[in-house]
């Protein structure tokens, strides 16, 4: 497609300019991807502070290592390798610490910070309201039970819309392995959520 190759050319030009020390070009690169990076980190980590940490570290690593980017994969893939590694590290640390920073202990029991935020999409529909409470909590639990890798594959496929082949590239594995991972994740979730949905 002409348009797509045009965009790609623009991006390679941007990358080359940034590699040559053009800060404005680097900024454009950041702006092209930072919203989806932040969305990824926020959705996985559910903590603005942690998401910001990942954002900072990811783009600093890009900045420091851009000179070694050789165009043997897309910039998007390269960036996502960095970001997913940072997120996986963070998720694994949490697993070890058994820490769930989105859950606040309150007098009435644990409270999900995300649940505490009023649902924007609640439009007085009691059915919908019920969803934002119970089901949301259940989904969080189930996602928490996935392995970091399963969680990541699910995130990349469901929320980021990446194809499994790309996910394999990002995570340094095969499409088949990514597919198995997604399969396991969805099986677990269907088993856990079947009664709720």
């Amino acid at each position: 497609m002409a348009l797509k190759s045009g965009l790609q050319m623009d991006e390679s030009a941007l990358i080359r300019a940034a590699q040559d020390g053009d800060h404005a070009a680097f900024e454009q690169l950041v702006r092209a991807y930072d919203q989806s990076v932040l969305r990824l980190a926020m959705n996985l980590l559910r903590s603005p502070e942690d998401a910001n940490d990942v954002y900072q570290e990811a783009f600093l690593r890009v900045y420091r290592n851009l000179h070694s980017f050789r165009f043997d994969c897309s910039f998007h893939t390269w960036l996502y390798r960095i970001v997913t590694n940072l997120c996986l590290d963070q998720m694994r640390k949490r697993k070890v610490r058994k820490e769930e920073p989105t859950v606040l202990a309150t007098a009435e029991g644990p409270l999900d910070r995300m649940d505490a935020v009023p649902e924007e999409r609640v439009d007085g529909d009691p059915q919908r309201h019920l969803f934002s409470g119970q089901v949301r909590r259940r989904i969080r639990e189930v996602l928490g039970e996935l392995t970091p890798r399963e969680r990541m594959v699910f995130e990349l496929r469901h929320y980021q819309g990446l194809r499994l082949r790309r996910i394999g590239e990002v995570l340094g594995t095969t499409e088949e392995a990514a597919k198995n991972c997604l399969f396991r994740a969805t099986q677990k979730m269907r088993a856990a959520l079947g009664d709720f949905i």
Partner: peptide, 10 residues
């Protein structure tokens, strides 16, 4: 339901 669960950064 998963779509609904998505956290959008402010």
């Amino acid at each position: 339901a998963f779509d609904q669960y998505e956290a959008t950064p402010s």
